[in-house]
Design a protein around this nucleic acid. Structure first.
Length: 722
RNA sequence: GGGCGGUUAGCUCAGUUGGUAGAGCGUUUCUUUGACGUAGAAAAGGUCACAGGUUCGAAUCCUGUACCGCCCACCA
């Protein structure tokens, strides 16, 4: 009781409370009391172990914890599995930045050393992040926690690769890939960003034609002139016809190619192609079986074909080449204000250079069809539902997925490669096989999988697919809660792998949250220096204040401006709960909490109103509107319970003391206050677990308070149907 | 080029099936009352972007416009 003489001190309570929860064992659904036939499962999106928790983590942990605590209290076997992602490329980028700062480079390290260093770095982060997740109150089952590089998970991921290869869903192919010249690896399409830039658009004289380009530095080997077959202006030129042209480094002979890929209304309607460094051009070249030739090396420098420009970085080369073209009279004109879309690496912002490379690809069309089918059947619900459209769009337009990465930090691809004929073979034996096509001795593939290849299988992997008990019990999971920015990167891949491997959807509902921005609604970024560490906020205002502050006013998929004064406001709310509790405790010391007294009519009315609150909050929680549920509770507690009901009972308690009062009235008031407090604490618990659990310990027992741990207390019920 | 979201109080944002506008913070005044000054009571402050339409009634539904933001995109 003494504790209630001061204001609520979250820092004194939270650590102890979490310890009690964890020691209780109830984070593990198999240890929950009661029969609990119904399961409720959330797989936590595994945080990337390459930094510390940010505000986005705090949001998703809060949301998922709300769902889990709610369903646990409702009597379900609520399982929330935490985990950690090695986050292949992302982590390697972070680590390379660290190396750079230390004046070192990945390219000076042998792969084994680099791997071990990143491994240690990751484990360190993992430990740190797990303690941060705990501090946010996450009631997840740590006994089931998994890491994407656990040996059995690695083995399972490799098995999937082999299975897909055998099923004809993975092939080795030479295709245009996104090459990051800084990090020396290929990237999938979702790992690049399209950025619009103003670029000069050059019109160059090419024999009898004028061609347009934004990249004169790629044009050295151009020897095909493309024209639309129906373009009236160029009817005199026939398909296959040779023309002579004076070009950058001397005369060339070019061949006219007629292809409908050319847009007659763009530029002059004539273009030359650079198949090695453009996906479109590559497709055209393949169609007509044209020669393809590399112009730019893997470091972004011009190859010997560029003559005097060989060895120059393409960025520096462009003005020099333009200058030469101008001198030779080949530069017709320049459009200075051309808006061009270029791809950049989503992590380091380097210009992506399209290159042709042998890689492993996942054939997406049949898999995407599977995924679309289940969505058509309404088997997966999206919250908010407009994201179903986004999902569909992406699935309908899915390109084959390059899963090879030229980095060490990841799961090794169990394959052998033939350098002679570009053939690839699967297998993880130690003996190098002979190439089945040309007979040459093959070498081990040193590439690793795209992270999304493993995290796409995450719901299966953490539940120990295919033989684990958890897989049998908890798959398919109930809700996948993640950021809408992962609607492309992650969600479709999980659906695909779930359907392909388990023949079942991985989750019934996809709940998407928005992005946590700074107080002005601007994106947080280290370079802007506007990053808020959630743990600084919890230290100042308490975890509960941060949690409910993140939830209220934040509907599904809405971006959120994180404002410290808002969190501070909800710290006041926590204190309000604390003080109202003190009032109730002081006034029910002599109350009979077992036998229901005769209740005053107005008190019966208040209890009815309380039922409505229970119904409303329950309905909103079921409906994934955590913001409305929390807001409703907030208002009820403060402006009805505290401002009206408590104020009214003050008169009763006061008069009872003064004139001997009316004992029946007092008893009615005591019952009312106790009931409302017990009920609202239960309702508030998913949102503000620490303060509610702390108070629970000090409430006198009664039939309404079954046990010592609020966490597993039954959710309030009403007579009415919800 | 395609798609999505937004435009509501000084700031950041709620407002779920249409029924006289809400929160947090900020501002003003009063109150040191026996839960709470991290508070209470009261108050100021909004033509709900704009223009049409449906309706007895629209912030809410429909159409269009403007501006902002985000996502997707192989016109060189």
């Amino acid at each position: 009781m003494n504790k209630f003489l001061t204001a609520y001190q979250p820092q004194d309570e939270e650590g102890l409370i979490y310890e009690r929860w964890e020691k209780s064992g109830f984070f593990n659904p198999d240890k929950l009391p009661g029969s609990r036939p119904e399961t409720y499962t959330i797989i936590m999106p595994p945080p990337n172990a390459n930094g510390s928790l940010h505000a986005g983590h705090a949001l998703f942990i809060t949301l998922e914890d709300i769902m889990i605590r709610f369903e646990r209290m409702r009597g379900k076997r609520a399982l929330w599995v935490p985990g950690t992602d090695h986050a292949g490329f992302e982590t390697q980028v972070v680590y390379e930045r660290k190396l750079e700062k230390e004046g070192r480079s990945r390219f000076g390290l042998d792969p084994k050393t680099l791997y071990d260093e990143i491994h240690n770095f990751t484990l360190e982060n993992k430990k740190n992040m797990e303690s941060q997740v705990r501090s946010l109150g996450a009631s997840c089952d740590w006994s089931r926690s998994r890491f994407t590089l656990d040996p059995d998970i690695v083995a399972e991921v490799q098995k999937t690769f082999i299975k897909m290869f055998r099923d004809g869903l993975i092939y080795r192919g030479q295709r245009t890939i996104n090459w990051c010249p800084k990090h020396q690896t290929s990237l999938s399409d979702v790992e690049t960003e399209n950025v619009e830039e103003k670029t000069p658009f050059y019109y160059l004289k090419y024999g009898p034609f004028e061609i347009g380009t934004v990249r004169p530095e790629t044009k050295f080997a151009d020897k095909y002139v493309l024209i639309h077959p129906d373009d009236e202006r160029y009817q005199e030129y026939k398909h296959g016809q040779k023309i002579e042209a004076e070009w950058i480094n001397g005369p060339v002979t070019a061949t006219v190619i007629k292809d409908t890929a050319v847009d007659p209304s763009f530029g002059t309607g004539v273009m030359t192609i650079t198949p090695w460094h453009s996906a479109v051009d590559f497709e055209i070249a393949k169609r007509h079986q044209l020669n393809i030739e590399q112009i730019i090396d893997w470091r972004g420098k011009l190859l010997p074909i560029a003559g005097e420009f060989a060895g120059i970085n393409i960025k520096d080369a462009r003005p020099k080449i333009v200058e030469k073209l101008k001198e030779k009279g080949l530069l017709a004109r320049v459009d200075e204000n051309y808006a061009n879309v270029v791809k950049r690496c989503y992590k380091c912002n380097a210009m992506i250079e399209p290159q042709v490379k042998d890689q492993w690809f996942v054939k997406m069309a049949p898999l995407a069809k599977l995924a679309l089918g289940t969505v058509d059947e309404g088997k997966i619900r999206f919250v908010p539902d407009n994201y179903e459209k986004v999902f569909r769009y992406w699935m309908k337009n899915a390109l084959d997925w390059n899963i090879s990465r030229q980095i060490v930090w990841g799961i090794p691809i169990p394959a052998w490669l033939c350098d002679e004929c570009h053939e690839g073979a699967i297998g993880d034996s130690d003996v190098a096989p002979k190439c089945g096509k040309c007979g040459a001795t093959m070498r081990r593939d040193t590439d690793t999988f795209d992270t999304w290849f493993s995290s796409g299988q995450w719901p299966l992997l953490v539940l120990n697919y295919p033989d684990g008990e958890d897989y049998k019990t908890y798959y398919p999971t109930t809700v996948m809660e993640t950021g809408y920015d992962l609607i492309f990167r992650w969600v479709p891949r999980m659906v695909i792998f779930g359907l392909y491997l388990a023949k079942q959807i991985p989750f019934h509902t996809v709940y998407l949250h928005g992005i946590v921005n700074d107080a002005q609604g601007k994106k947080m970024s280290k370079s802007k220096g506007n990053v808020t560490n959630p743990l600084e906020l919890t230290a100042k205002y308490g975890t509960d204040a941060l949690r409910i502050g993140l939830v209220i006013g934040n509907p599904p998929a809405a971006d959120l401006a994180l404002r410290e004064d808002k969190i501070k406001g909800y710290k006041h709310f926590a204190n309000k709960i604390w003080n109202a509790t003190r009032f109730v405790l002081e006034n029910i010391k002599d109350a009979d909490l077992v036998v229901v007294p005769d209740l005053l009519p107005e008190h019966q009315k208040y209890l009815k109103q309380l039922d409505e609150v229970v119904n409303e909050v329950t309905k909103q929680l079921e409906n994934f509107r955590f913001d409305l549920a929390a807001d409703h509770l907030y208002h009820y507690f403060w402006h009805t319970f505290a401002d009206v009901i408590i104020e009214e009972t003050k008169v009763i308690f006061k008069s009872e003391m003064e004139v001997g009062g009316n004992l029946a009235t007092k008893k009615s008031a005591q019952w009312l206050l106790y009931t409302i407090l017990v009920t609202t604490l239960k309702l508030l618990h998913p949102f503000m677990p620490f303060i509610t659990e702390t108070i629970w310990e000090y409430l006198p027992p009664s039939p309404q308070k079954n046990g010592d741990l609020l966490m597993i207390e039954p959710w309030p019920k009403t007579d009415k149907k919800v």
